[in-house]
Amino acid sequence: MTTELKIPEYKLAEEESGKWGMVVDTDLCTGCQACVAACAMENNIPYVGEEDAAYGRSMHWIRTERFWEGEYPEVRMTDYQPMLCQQCGHAPCEPVCPAFATVHSQSEKLNLQVYNRCVGTRYCANNCPYQVRSFNWRDYQDPRLRPEITILANQFNPDVTVRRRGVMEKCTFCIQRIHKAQDLAKSEGREVEDGEFTTACAQACPANAITFGRIDHPETLVSQLAHSSRGVHHLEELGTLPRVTYLKGG
């Protein structure tokens, strides 16, 4: 117990590059909801039921947004825009958490949600400009309250914590898959290759609209797409440094 606690040198978020990033081509997204379903199945996300969904309590970690422009007959729908946690480099959710439950991962450069620290103040959700955080208003996964969970629980992914009531949650960039791929690569004495694994949403997307990978390696597909002239960062003006790039327009 004599090791000296060495606190890493503090860096401004702007000085740090991201590690994992995503590119979403909204010209290709067809709004088919395959990503939403894949995400729910991978991450043990509970369904909340009709009534709670009407209260805006549904727990989608990713959703496809679309907006209307104009009125009939000159009406237009904007491109579908899958909205998920942007894994901001400078995240508005982080400084407001009194319990340090939403913290920035120094090693993976992701926004973490540490369920066992979360006390449910919901300050983070209040401060998230992308509105991508969802709160467990009930024990949705408790078989005592929902008998059907007893059998539905067979499909739970053992690599992802089942959240209880009073806990905030959000997209993790499938951190369990990141760990799995890194662990496998390490056991074989190599680096994780580009395209070796991907997030559940990108894996399912029939239109190939979602690309995931290392944005700090210039040769990866996701880095190259992110530098496209069509690339847009949402609410960039807030200084959030999002790690998700949207490719807009035709």
Binding site: C32, Q33, A37, M41, Q155, N157, P158, N208
Partner: peptide, 27 residues
């Protein structure tokens, strides 16, 4: 236990992709 449905990357029909209904087949 069946945990997760993924697309078969070799099958020429879907080349590793699935739709939402395919994903939810576990339910």
């Amino acid at each position: 236990r069946a945990i997760k449905v993924e697309g078969n990357a070799n099958n020429p029909v879907n080349l590793g992709k699935t739709c939402a209904r395919g994903q939810a087949t576990l339910q």
